[in-house]
């Protein structure tokens, strides 16, 4: 695998994860439990879609085949998507959404902190910009983890169940393969061992304060790096891509 191919692949992984979680959050638009939360989730969704736009635009340039961010977002199928499995999981109830978001935000916070030092200028610029926004996201979801976890018996049970269900998708956040190895050598991306340690510390602290138990399950789900997804992604893409595929040359 060449450096260029590795970089393209890595940018897809980052960009797709942001795009898919952004799309999931946007599904809450008009359905939030309270108005402030509806607005908050859509603000966060917007940040993610903006971040995905920058990453996929750059991915297209790196690939050099003339594909832009829209081509990459709307004209690729499920097996070509590289987003982490946790990002495509359904919204469920509010505890599910908050748990998914918190686990992912914490990962993104520490990952982008490292990517700020990337030797690739564009990746570093995107990371600096996005990290400022992620800081707000993580603060928001951390507060909700405390509120639900250390709230009523009902909210605690729901959040603990949500965490238990999602836990099997968390080990994939730190998996590394040939793509990572090539880019780590060039100082473009970080070794995820360090990111994992910071993530575990943060998650353990918030869980302790929120009176949540860290699940003991050792079962791991993976596959996103090879485009193997859970059954949920196809439905999401069908909805997200329908208009663009029906009218591929339409201009606003």
């Amino acid at each position: 695998m060449t450096l260029q191919e590795a970089k393209f692949e890595y940018l897809l992984r980052l960009g797709d994860s942001s795009l898919i979680i952004g799309h999931r959050l946007s599904e809450w638009c008009g359905h939030g439990p309270i108005l402030e939360e509806d607005i908050a989730l859509i603000n966060i969704a917007l940040d993610f879609v903006g971040n995905a736009t920058s990453l996929l635009e750059y991915a297209g340039k790196v690939e050099g085949k003339g594909r832009n961010e829209d081509d990459l977002a709307f004209m690729r199928g499920e097996r070509e998507y590289r987003n982490l499995l946790i990002t495509e999981q359904p919204n469920g109830d509010y505890a599910n959404t908050i748990a998914r978001q918190f686990l992912f935000d914490a990962h993104m916070f520490f990952l982008y902190e490292e990517l700020k030092n990337s030797k690739d200028e564009t990746i570093a610029a995107i990371a600096v910009k996005s990290h400022k926004e992620i800081t707000y996201h993580l603060r928001h979801t951390s507060q909700w983890m405390l509120r639900l976890g250390d709230g009523t018996a009902e909210s605690h049970t729901r959040l603990q169940n949500a965490v238990n269900e999602l836990w099997m998708f968390t080990s994939e956040l730190f998996d590394m393969d040939e793509v990572d190895a090539i880019l780590i050598k060039e100082g473009i991306v970080p070794d995820l061992t360090k990111v994992k340690a910071a993530w575990e510390k943060q998650v353990n602290e918030v869980f302790a304060e929120a009176t949540l138990t860290v699940p003991e399950t050792k079962f791991k789900q993976k596959g996103s790096k090879e485009g193997k997804h859970s059954e949920h992604l196809g439905f999401l893409l069908a909805e997200m891509q329908y208009v663009h595929r029906s009218f591929p040359d339409a201009k606003w």
């Binding site: 402030e36 939360e37 607005i39 908050a40 603000n43 966060i44 926004e133 603060r139």
Partner: peptide, 9 residues
Amino acid sequence: MISQFGSTA
């Protein structure tokens, strides 16, 4: 503070 997120990002 009511919410960290307001009418715009």
